[in-house]
Write a protein that binds this DNA or RNA. Structure first.
Length: 706
RNA sequence: GGUCGCUUGGCUCAGUUGGUUAGAGCGUCUCGUUUACAUCGAGAAGGUCGGGGGUUCGAAUCCCUCAGCGACCACCA
């Protein structure tokens, strides 16, 4: 054995050895295994590269998987990658534009698909090999891709079943429209950004109305006020008044609605139902006309008169200028702070639009599920305890989210993804897993929201809708581990899908890890230049060290602050374990007979070993990985090495040695330490296991009985 | 505006049924070049556990209140 542990010499070889052993696949595990343990990996983007968030996720999941495998359970961890529809398509589109100056419409749907497929093929191996470098004991024989054949079947089946149950419908409703990507965006995929803009007060007949967006106001012909607002007592609901507006005279109608807050401004507002969620609701309540003002590209429509055809950004100052000339501006607040909605995937500013889209009805009662709605089912999964969330405080957040949940818009106007299994022929509509045979049917051009297919992930990866052995054995899965930032996006939707389609929860336990930040608590970003690349760190310090640094000090749900110093510290620990082994191995040949009163030392270390093992086991069962890892670290370094080993050393003149009676104890403690350390630091422990001339793999040895 | 969380030695953090002198890593200081390891060892300094009040025989841990920070959610035109 070398004097220091050099991870570069071993990690790749060890991973290969594990892979060829076949033990990542539960079907090959030795012995009779009755209990099962299953985790489905949250699929990273197929075109992405490994970041620290992935690394943290892989570390946590691999620890639990290795632990349960050693506990004698039939254990599977299923890998996969995600097509990341919008992100991938826009990446390919931007390359297309940069290199060839073309848009997707220039090359057509089929050609774009080909380009995307090629791009994915190129980059898929990158993320997979990076996942492997973390030591992830994933069963690659069960690898799934969100757009592969099996998953396609599942998505089609799910859509059709939900449609037949009346849970999916098509309707005209207001959506979040991204003019840049030309697609709808889900409520949760929106980010709000603070911005300073002028706030205008306009004269609207006898009233004063305020807005930051004059360009939407052309069609405003309803004035809304609170029914109890005394200032406007003389106006009755439905009254008509004539007034002068941007492009000439207009007849406005008075609407009394509680949505108007008397405390805000003048207490009066006009509405633009076509481009505002609130206004849309008001318009629907009172059955008002709804007129589109801005088109999908952000251009003004003919209703804008002389401004028609102009882009809203350019038109705004011109409109303000015109209003000024007409004497309709009362005042302007130049520094009004408000929030604008943007597509968090990096797209443009959201413009609400009314569109004919496909929706999932979250409130409809489902006869085959005891007349419960999807919302009810989602609540029940947690309330009944069928699924538990760690840390538990997120359960409250989860309920709150469900309470505010609106119908889910699942159609997207992009080409890359699962195409909606609906065909039209004139007024006729056909919904099925396969295209109708006769001619003349045209398929809906839209694709499904990526979270629709992700929602099926726990069972689509197990072969559903086929009733496979895997599905029977491994569903509901034991645990879902992910960052708390996608609790809503994903976790909630998996519960929704599984509850309806399978009548059971997708997982028994949710473990939410925190976000990885830099050592000052800042998010890692390119612009700050504080990104730590996990692959670089693995090169430098080894995967074991990276894993430990992401576990210790990271309580569930709390953000992790990481620095290179910490990673280095755990590299040192790996080396410590290595050298303990060298000492123990050497002790066999240099032991001396000088036995003194040392029985208490032996008893003490064995007692400590037992205590540590027990506590580590308990903490792993309770998902307290951070505490478990710290205990082992402390035991191995400060109890075993610093205290016990030092005490076994003997000195006779110039001859150094080891107390003979301690040799078997050293062996025993080392061996058991390696076992309980293995889930955390799999590479160095496996290599040592091999150096100690064991034939089997540490990977599948039995967890010490406690 | 609503909800949730955080505040423990210089820095980063543990501490879930309230119980003896409050822990770790990094950093700092002193000493040590003994063949397991300098990616090391021995030792040390450093905390009224954000402020105040309360419950209790006893609180970092439970309750109230104040302050600072952060996150998420929300339709302020």
């Amino acid at each position: 054995m070398d004097k220091t542990y050099n991870h570069k010499l071993y990690e790749e070889k060890i991973y290969k050895k594990w892979e060829t052993s076949g033990y990542f696949n539960p079907d090959n595990l030795p012995g009779e295994r009755k209990e099962t343990f299953s985790i489905v990996l949250p699929p990273p983007n197929v075109t992405g590269t490994l970041h620290l968030g992935h690394a943290a996720m892989l570390a946590v999941e691999d620890i639990l998987v290795r632990y349960n495998r050693m506990q004698g359970k039939k254990t599977v961890w299923i890998p996969g990658t995600d097509s990341a529809a919008i992100a991938t398509q826009s990446k390919v589109e931007s390359v297309l534009y940069k290199e060839e100056g073309k848009t997707r419409h220039d090359i057509g749907r089929t050609e774009l698909m080909n380009r995307i497929e090629a791009f994915i093929k190129d980059s898929e191996s990158t993320i997979i090999s990076q996942v492997k470098r973390m030591g992830s004991s994933l069963d690659w024989s069960r690898y799934a891709y969100t757009l592969d054949g099996t998953r396609y079947k599942a998505v089609m089946e799910a859509f059709v079943r939900m449609y037949k149950a009346g849970l999916i419908y098509r309707g005209n409703r207001i959506v979040n429209w991204d003019p840049q990507f030309q697609t709808t965006v889900a409520d949760d995929e929106i980010e709000y950004k603070e911005q300073i803009d002028p706030f205008y007060y306009f004269k609207y007949g006898p009233f004063t109305i305020g807005t930051v967006r004059p360009e939407t106001k052309f069609g405003d012909k309803y004035v809304v006020m609170h029914p109890d607002d005394k200032r406007y007592k003389k106006y009755k609901h439905g009254d008509k008044i004539k007034l002068e507006w941007i492009n000439g005279p207009l007849t406005a109608t008075i609407i009394k609605d509680t949505a108007a807050d008397p405390e805000v401004g003048s207490g009066v507002m006009t509405i633009t139902p076509s481009h505002s969620f609130v206004d849309f609701e008001i318009a629907k309540r009172h059955n008002l006309d709804i007129e589109q003002v801005i088109d999908e590209k952000g251009l003004l429509l003919p209703i804008a008169g002389e401004f028609a055809g102009q882009h809203i950004k350019k038109a705004r100052p011109l409109i303000v200028e015109k209003l000024k000339q007409k004497g309709l501006i009362e005042k302007v607040d130049e520094k009004y702070i408000h929030k604008i909605a943007i597509n968090y995937r990096g797209g443009g500013t959201i413009e609400p639009q009314i569109k004919l889209q496909w929706w999932v009805d979250v409130n409809k009662e489902i006869p085959e599920r005891d007349n419960k709605s999807l919302k009810d089912l989602m609540r029940e999964a947690i309330k009944s305890g069928a699924t538990k969330i760690t840390p538990s405080r997120f359960e409250k957040t989860y309920y709150h989210w469900i309470d505010n949940l609106r119908d889910w818009c699942i159609s997207r106007q992009i080409w890359f993804g699962h195409r909606i299994p609906v065909w039209y022929k004139g007024e006729e509509i056909f919904v099925g897993t396969e295209a109708p045979k006769e001619k003349g049917w045209e398929q809906d051009p839209d694709t499904l929201d990526t979270w629709f297919s992700s929602g099926l992930w726990t069972f689509s990866t197990l072969g559903w809708p086929e009733q496979t052995e895997d599905l029977k054995n491994f569903h509901p899965t034991s645990l879902l581990e992910t960052g708390y930032d996608i609790l809503f996006f994903w976790v909630a939707r998996m519960i929704l899908m599984s509850s309806f389609l399978l009548g059971e929860v997708p997982f028994k336990q949710v473990y939410l890890h925190g976000l990885v930040r830099d050592n000052q608590g800042r998010k890692m970003s390119k612009s700050l230049g504080n990104i730590i690349n996990p692959v670089d760190m693995i090169d430098k310090y080894g995967a074991d060290a990276v894993r430990m640094s992401l576990i210790i000090g990271a309580a569930p749900g709390n953000d992790i602050k990481l620095s290179e110093d910490r990673i280095r510290g755990y590299r040192n620990f790996a080396n410590k374990v290595w050298n303990i082994t060298r000492f123990v191995t050497e002790s066999e040949s240099i032991n001396t007979k000088s036995d003194k009163s040392v029985k208490t030392d032996d008893e003490w270390i064995l007692e400590e070993l037992k205590k540590t093992t027990l506590s580590v086991t308990k903490n792993l069962d309770k998902f307290k990985l951070n505490e478990a890892a710290e205990e082992i670290y402390d035991f191995v370094w400060h109890k075993f090495a610093d205290i016990y080993i030092e005490k076994t050393k003997t000195k006779d003149g110039d001859n150094f040695g080891v107390r003979e009676s301690a040799v078997p104890i050293l062996q025993q403690v080392l061996e058991q330490s390696l076992k309980i350390l293995h889930p955390f630091m799999p590479f160095v422990t496996e290599q040592i296991w091999h150096e100690m001339e064991n034939d089997d793999l540490l990977l599948i040895t039995a967890w010490p009985k406690v």
